[in-house]
Design a binder for these strands. Sequence first.
DNA 1: ATTGAGATTTTGGCATACCTCAATTATAAA
DNA 2: TTTATAATTGAGGTATGCCAAAATCTCAAT
Lengths: 237, 237
Amino acid sequence: MPKSQLRSQLNLSESGEDYLKAIFQLREELRRTHDSDLVTTNALAARLGVAPGSVTGMVKKLADLELVTHAPYRGVNLTEVGERLALELVRHHRLLELYLTRVVGFRWDEVHDQADALEHAISEEFEDRIDEMLGNPAYDPHGDPIPTKEGQITGPELAPLAAMIPDPDRIYTIVRVLTQDPTLLRYLDQLRLTPGTHIRLMARAPFGGDLRVATETAECLISPLIAGVMLVMHSGH
Amino acid sequence: MPKSQLRSQLNLSESGEDYLKAIFQLREELRRTHDSDLVTTNALAARLGVAPGSVTGMVKKLADLELVTHAPYRGVNLTEVGERLALELVRHHRLLELYLTRVVGFRWDEVHDQADALEHAISEEFEDRIDEMLGNPAYDPHGDPIPTKEGQITGPELAPLAAMIPDPDRIYTIVRVLTQDPTLLRYLDQLRLTPGTHIRLMARAPFGGDLRVATETAECLISPLIAGVMLVMHSGH
DNA sequence: ATTGAGATTTTGGCATACCTCAATTATAAA
DNA sequence: TTTATAATTGAGGTATGCCAAAATCTCAAT
Ligand SMILES: [Mn+2]
Ligand SMILES: [Mn+2]
Ligand SMILES: [Mn+2]
Ligand SMILES: [Mn+2]
């Protein structure tokens, strides 16, 4: 079923769409770290900047629409339809981020908030046009995978640089950064630590100290916190 | 004061923005035909697809914000600030319409509804970028003038083709079409009666009959209703 | 100038959506 | 079993909309 039908049939509010997307993203994060599928009320409230009571209310509404399953006092999960809808929103968001950087000329630290506003307002036709204009891209400016029109989302196995063992002979490729913080994004840009860059992890200071990272042209020190949001892949060589 | 400040300070709802824009546009239409400045409750209700009572309520809110003046039972008018805000929205709308046709590749009958949704969602920076990308355009795809960033709106004196006297030697330029109806827009496109086209008014059938119009390559008959929305300018020659 | 019919506008009552806060209840760790 | 944490409930607030009754205006006829 094309998304336009799904979205217009359900006539979901912008707020409802935000909840769905937040549930999807929090679940992704849970799967990366823990092994859970259930998103808690508090986590959702924090993410959306809303009181916990508001979350319970909206979650009930979404459960009535069969977009989520709700186990009271335990957590929320997406149904198949809910996940599909969430993926369509994530697709909008990430396509827009890439469009805003590649076509409109924004920096990668400027696009998240704009995409958050635009993702609810664009038409399916607009989505299709920019997808084509961008050559059916698979990744957004931060390396986040863009779901296909059919709702498929894939990507290589990635691990944070923070989990790697220093080895000057091993080359990694930066694939994705797990942050939308403009300040951090600008800082990474300045150090040329952006998706696509080849790096080597030279050394790690003891007791949670900084990591020494070499690009092809320079070396720098980054905190474990930063290394935790940089997802890398083993590079050939 | 830049619009971003004006918009964020007032924190006006999307609904409020729609009212402001509707008041502005109805007032423009009144000025063209009658000589009034006061927009009636009913006209606003019809335009916005809302009950008259809803209009009274919102108008009161806008009057509290000093964006409009409200003379009960008489009508509503924009204050200076309200007009400024309305012009900023109209600028968004018309820039977006042009952008959607020229850059994204939509036809002129497809862009109005999309611009209506997007005009509330884009940032000032996005507005500036597409304005630059389009070369600071003065007119949208329908020939509607685009207000400047400073809120200036100008345009040549125009009259509907319907008001012209047939004269095969006189050449007009189509400058603007006063409709957003997709069916009519497609029809005009098909007849090549689009802004920029040079035409001559050959004849007019009696008793409100059709007008015979010649383009450089063809002739066609159009109804007085259509000729009423086609605004033309005397062309050199 | 006055009047009264008809049209328009406002008012007041109600509904829905989304939010907050405070009190209550459930869960799970100590 | 106790206690801390988390989630839900219920009351209440704001924004926006609808409808129908009441108020007000307009305008043509006297
Ligand atoms: Mn983003
Ligand atoms: Mn992203
Ligand atoms: Mn338009
Ligand atoms: Mn237009």
